[in-house]
Amino acid sequence: MVIRITLGGISKPHSSKSMKTGDWGTEFPIVDEEKCTACRACEHLCPDGCIVVVEKGEKKVAVPDYDYCKGCGVCFTACPADAIRMELKDIYKLDVC
């Protein structure tokens, strides 16, 4: 495979998008769209910029991007409307016998 070697190591913007970090975390956020007030606190505070408020039908709601979400829970703690909960990923739900 031929690799590209740029002048002095210049990289293209947003090329980190190829790194899908969504599998890092053990938990993931779930937004209660009824409770969400689209205040954007989660959007502004997400360390990874992977939860954004979008129009969904008649309502604006926060939608996490699970391709990148690391499950840190900052959005969960930031939400003033208590509209985000964290859930354990299925693969970490272990049966203890």
């Binding site: 947003h14 980190s16 998008k17 190829s18 790194m19 899908k20 970090t21 890092w24 975390g25 360390p47 990874d48 910029g49 992977c50 991007d65 391709d67 990148y68 690391k70 499950g71 840190c72 829970g73 900052v74």
Partner: peptide
């Protein structure tokens, strides 16, 4: 900025 960067989950 981001996503896809390598900061720890919850990085300030």
């Amino acid at each position: 900025f981001g996503p896809g960067h390598g900061a720890c989950p919850g990085c300030g």
